[in-house]
Computed example of a mutant assay.
Amino acid sequence: MTTTSARGGVAAPFALARYRDGNSIRLGLVAGDRIRPLDPQDLGAAGLNGFLGSPDWNRLEDLAAAEGPWISLDSVTLTAPVEPRQVLQTGANYRTHVIDLVVAGLAKDDPRSPEEAREWAGKMMDDRQANGEPYFFIGLPACVVGDDVPLALPPYSQKHDWELELAVVIGAEAFRVSREEAMAHVAGYTIVNDITTRDLVFRRDMKEIGTDWYRGKNAPGFLPTGPFLVPAPFVDPARLKVRLELNGDVMQDATTDDLLFDIPALVAAASQNMPLLPGDLLLTGSPAGNGAHWGRLLRDGDVMTGSIQGLGTQVVRCVAEQAAGEA
Results as ranks from 00 to 15, higher is better:
residue 20 R to A: 14
residue 112 R to A: 11
residue 151 L to P: 03
residue 152 A to R: 11
residue 101 L to H: 04
residue 312 G to V: 09
residue 97 H to P: 04
residue 140 L to C: 14
residue 279 G to K: 08
residue 129 Q to V: 13
residue 179 R to H: 10
residue 273 N to M: 02
residue 170 I to K: 02
residue 127 D to I: 15
residue 233 P to R: 06
residue 240 L to I: 07
residue 110 D to V: 06
residue 289 G to A: 03
residue 80 A to E: 10
residue 185 H to I: 12
residue 262 D to M: 06
residue 26 R to G: 09
residue 200 L to I: 08
residue 189 Y to A: 05
residue 19 Y to M: 07
residue 81 P to C: 10
residue 120 W to K: 14
residue 170 I to A: 05
residue 205 D to G: 11
residue 167 A to F: 06
residue 71 I to Q: 15
residue 19 Y to I: 09
residue 213 W to P: 00
residue 48 L to F: 05
residue 154 P to I: 13
residue 242 V to Q: 01
residue 136 F to N: 08
residue 215 R to M: 13
residue 69 P to Y: 03
residue 1 M to K: 09
residue 60 L to W: 07
residue 231 P to E: 05
residue 79 T to G: 02
residue 253 D to T: 07
residue 118 R to C: 00
residue 21 D to N: 12
residue 193 N to M: 04
residue 211 T to Y: 02
residue 159 K to Q: 10
residue 217 K to Y: 06
residue 90 T to C: 10
residue 304 M to A: 04
residue 312 G to E: 03
residue 200 L to Q: 11
residue 73 L to A: 05
residue 109 D to A: 01
residue 254 A to W: 02
residue 68 G to S: 05
residue 88 L to K: 11
residue 28 G to R: 10
residue 26 R to S: 15
residue 316 V to G: 00
residue 29 L to N: 09
residue 153 L to N: 04
residue 32 G to R: 11
residue 290 N to G: 15
residue 14 F to Q: 10
residue 216 G to F: 05
residue 293 H to M: 08
residue 178 S to A: 09
residue 45 A to C: 05
residue 18 R to G: 07
residue 232 A to K: 11
residue 108 K to G: 01
residue 203 R to G: 07
residue 64 A to C: 04
residue 200 L to T: 13
residue 69 P to A: 15
residue 203 R to L: 13
residue 29 L to P: 06
residue 224 P to R: 07
residue 166 L to I: 04
residue 258 D to I: 07
residue 220 P to I: 09
residue 32 G to T: 11
residue 5 S to E: 06
residue 250 V to A: 00
residue 190 T to K: 07
residue 83 E to N: 12
residue 46 A to C: 03
residue 221 G to L: 08
residue 317 R to W: 00
residue 238 A to F: 02
residue 122 G to N: 14
residue 319 V to W: 00
residue 23 N to R: 14
residue 27 L to N: 08
residue 219 A to N: 11
residue 145 V to T: 15
residue 87 V to L: 13
residue 236 D to P: 01
residue 323 A to L: 11
